[in-house]
Amino acid sequence: MANHFDFDQAEGLRRMLAGPKPRIVTFLSATPEDDKGAMLVNLGASLARAGNDVLIVDACDREYGVAQRLGVADRASLLQVARQQCALNQIIHQVPQGFGVVSMARARGGPDEARRLAKTFDVLVKQTGIVIVDGEFGDDDTFPVPIMDSAEIVVQVSTSAASITAAYALIKRLSQQLGRRPFGILVTGASEAEAKVVYDNMSSAASRYLAVQLTSMGSVPADEYLHRAARLGRAVVDAFPLAGASVAFRQLAGRFALTAMPQLGRTGGTSHFGS
């Protein structure tokens, strides 16, 4: 008994000294490329307005990422920090929407460079409250850094049949590579009722055919004010605070900041629709 107690004490002390784990959420998309960028900018702005320390890491190679959208894609990247070509504080760019943006870039110089990039990313995320990754699941079925395998993953989907099919195929690829673990679903361009139908159908199919648990992260309606705000170079929550999309993003940010997705290995999904 004493040995078990000593072990538990030591483990508890290690956890306290380690401090809270950083919140890392990778967003993948089965929607047109511009939809994810718009969603992430508005989510980041909503979280920042609620008092959260937010960093968006653009880890896109093929897609139109947040750094490009906000005009900071040509700056130094996290990979250059890993190569000791610049300092970490030189690559974090604060944008008017209220959060920081960092470009990642994939390591292509072999295992040693990949390990250095992973360690640099670990240092970066420990300095920030919430890290949102604008991500891609590579053609080789990997993420740029290994910690993204075990962090939260949210798939953005719309109501179109093509988007739903693509999202399901992406979840299947993820589960085959990462094992049985939960994934979040965010439905955009949809009313709450439409989003609930999409989520319920996807959740049922994933549970039945993949043995994968999906968690609803909520929904954002189609709203012309989103496009108006983008043309102004602002977040919709700032430019048009009473718009339907602004209300949805504030609700999404509130749930997002308070509640992490179920821990890996837990069962029993949670739907946030109607909350």
Rank of each mutant, 00 (worst) to 15 (best):
150 S>M: 10
158 S>N: 05
181 R>V: 09
172 K>M: 00
173 R>S: 02
184 G>Q: 09
188 T>W: 14
218 G>P: 03
149 D>P: 00
137 F>L: 00
144 P>R: 01
158 S>C: 02
203 S>M: 14
150 S>V: 12
184 G>F: 09
169 A>G: 13
215 T>M: 15
200 D>V: 04
194 E>F: 01
180 R>I: 03
172 K>N: 01
198 V>C: 05
204 S>R: 15
182 P>I: 11
171 I>T: 06
165 T>Y: 04
174 L>C: 00
190 A>P: 15
198 V>G: 13
175 S>F: 04
156 Q>Y: 02
189 G>L: 00
147 I>Q: 12
161 A>I: 12
144 P>E: 07
204 S>V: 13
159 T>H: 12
161 A>K: 14
187 V>T: 08
163 S>V: 01
149 D>N: 08
214 L>K: 04
140 D>C: 07
139 D>S: 08
137 F>S: 02
159 T>N: 13
205 A>E: 01
197 V>D: 08
135 G>C: 13
181 R>F: 02
177 Q>Y: 11
219 S>I: 05
185 I>Q: 07
191 S>E: 12
133 V>L: 03
170 L>V: 01
180 R>D: 14
157 V>L: 03
140 D>V: 10
179 G>K: 15
185 I>P: 05
179 G>S: 15
134 D>K: 11
207 S>V: 12
138 G>C: 11
204 S>Y: 14
141 D>M: 03
191 S>I: 14
220 V>K: 11
220 V>R: 14
172 K>T: 02
193 A>W: 11
150 S>L: 11
190 A>E: 10
144 P>H: 10
172 K>Y: 00
213 Q>L: 06
135 G>Q: 05
200 D>F: 04
199 Y>G: 03
136 E>P: 10
165 T>W: 08
204 S>H: 14
199 Y>S: 01
